Amino acid sequence: MVSATGSGKTFTAASAALDMFPRGRVLVLVPTLDLLVQTAQAWRPTGGPPGGRVFHGRTQHS
Rank of each mutant, 00 (worst) to 15 (best):
V2T: 13
V2E: 10
V2C: 05
V2H: 12
V2P: 01
V2W: 09
V2Y: 01
S3Q: 11
S3T: 15
S3R: 15
A4P: 03
A4V: 03
A4S: 08
A4D: 14
A4T: 02
A4R: 10
A4W: 03
A4N: 12
T5N: 06
T5I: 05
T5Y: 06
T5P: 02
T5K: 07
T5L: 02
G6H: 11
G6K: 14
G6F: 13
S7H: 04
S7P: 03
G8S: 03
G8W: 01
G8H: 11
K9I: 05
K9Y: 12
K9N: 06
T10D: 05
T10S: 15
T10K: 08
T10R: 14
T10G: 12
T10C: 05
F11N: 13
F11E: 14
F11L: 15
F11C: 11
T12G: 06
T12P: 00
T12E: 08
T12I: 14
A13I: 04
A13E: 07
A13R: 13
A14L: 00
A14Q: 00
A14T: 00
A14V: 06
A14D: 00
A14K: 00
A14S: 10
A14I: 03
S15L: 15
S15D: 02
S15I: 15
S15V: 13
A16W: 08
A16S: 03
A16C: 12
A17M: 13
A17K: 07
A17P: 00
A17G: 13
L18D: 00
L18M: 15
L18W: 13
L18S: 00
D19Q: 14
D19Y: 04
D19G: 08
D19N: 12
D19P: 00
M20N: 02
M20W: 06
M20T: 08
F21E: 15
F21T: 13
F21R: 15
F21I: 05
F21K: 14
F21M: 14
P22R: 10
P22Q: 10
P22D: 07
P22I: 12
R23Y: 09
R23D: 14
G24C: 04
G24M: 10
G24D: 09
R25W: 00
R25M: 07
R25L: 08
R25V: 09
R25Q: 14
R25I: 11
R25G: 12
V26M: 01
V26P: 04
V26G: 04
V26F: 00
L27I: 09
L27W: 01
L27T: 06
L27R: 01
L27C: 06
L27M: 02
L27Y: 04
L27S: 04
V28P: 01
V28T: 14
V28G: 03
V28K: 05
V28H: 02
V28F: 11
V28N: 01
L29P: 03
L29N: 04
L29D: 06
L29Y: 04
V30E: 09
V30N: 10
V30W: 04
P31F: 06
P31I: 01
P31K: 05
P31W: 01
P31H: 02
P31D: 01
T32I: 09
T32G: 03
T32K: 08
L33R: 10
L33S: 09
L33H: 13
L33K: 15
L33T: 15
L33W: 15
D34E: 12
D34R: 10
